[in-house]
Design a protein around this nucleic acid. Structure first.
Length: 286
DNA sequence: ATACTTTCCTGGGCGC
DNA sequence: TGCGCCCAGGAAAGTA
């Protein structure tokens, strides 16, 4: 499931492979993948003849800078890009194909069809609301302690729900949320406005650190994630809690537990991070 | 305003 | 073996 580190790795691969290429035509095999206001027909028409200058990233969004358009792509759960020679048989789950002038295809594959493409006029690319409203990138300069503390103080939601909120900090998904909370030794159920100063700082530092290390490792491959070059990530060997249910905590040996917080599978060490029972269950048990 | 629920999707895993 | 059921989950729309 691509989070910031995986999307960043995909971005680098795309820049290596298709920066400078020109789109000659586009096939869309699943219309819902193209978000309003543009129909998939309009999407296909507008991209003809557009050159891909560079690919940027903001949070989990990829931004293809073209001549007249910014094409914005979100991979959601399972989206991936491949670059192949035109004419090669389509792999299963190929939903959008950008034919390039140099006899190659940039192809978008997505088992679950959750990914989305949007088109924004290039001079309005800063006005695209989903990106405009994102929180800061999780870097030391942009993701300030003051801002984070302010956001946490305003809500009693679980801290895990808050760091998954892209308006608070951009790019953190389920894997890196669990890993960051473990590194900072904070219970995922703890209400955000109950974190003290030390915890807030530890968590902010942990998010920055975990994301940076994962970017360096080329992301995490749990199930199917591959970058544009077809390579798996390497961060999965550094995971401490995600997917480690019943395995020994690397710090204290206590078995890692899995529960549900904010409707997401959540892995944590009940010794290092404290028992979930310390906090009132707000979620309906079903 | 906040906070929670539903929707979108398919493949994999499980019970019977 | 095969059918039905449930789960995984990011973001946006919907509801109270």
């Amino acid at each position: 499931m691509p989070e910031l580190p995986e999307v960043e790795t995909v971005r680098k691969g795309l820049n290596q492979l298709v920066a400078g290429a020109t789109i000659t035509s586009v096939d869309v095999f699943w219309n819902r993948m193209i978000t309003p206001p543009f129909s998939s027909e309009r999407f296909q028409e507008e991209l003809i003849g557009e050159q891909i200058h560079t690919i940027e990233r903001r949070g989990k969004y990829l931004i293809f800078l073209l001549d007249n358009w910014a094409m914005i792509s979100h991979l959601r759960m399972e989206g991936k890009f491949t670059v192949t020679k035109t004419g090669e048989p389509y792999q299963k789950h190929t939903h959008v194909v950008f034919h390039l002038a140099d006899n190659r295809d940039l192809r978008y594959l997505d088992v679950r069809k959750f990914g989305r493409f949007s088109l924004v006029p290039i001079d309005k690319k800063e006005k695209y609301a989903p990106i405009e409203n994102l929180g800061p990138e999780p870097t030391p300069i942009q993701f300030t302690l003051d801002n984070f503390h302010d956001k946490l103080s305003r809500t009693g939601r679980s801290i895990k729900a808050v760091i998954l909120d892209q308006h608070v900090v951009a790019g953190v998904g389920n894997i890196y949320a669990d890993e960051s909370l473990f590194q900072a030794k904070i219970n995922p159920m703890k209400p955000a406005n109950q974190l003290n100063e030390g915890e807030t700082k530890r968590l902010r530092d942990a998010i920055i650190d975990v994301i940076a290390n994962a970017v360096e490792a080329g992301g995490t491959t749990i199930r199917t994630y591959k970058n544009t070059l077809g390579e798996a990530g390497k961060f999965q060997v550094k995971l401490n809690v995600y997917g480690k249910t019943n395995q020994a905590c690397p710090r204290c040996g206590t078995p890692i537990e899995k529960t549900k917080v904010a409707q997401r599978g959540t892995h944590y060490c009940p010794h290092c991070q404290g028992s979930i029972d310390l906090y009132e269950k707000k979620e309906p048990k079903g």
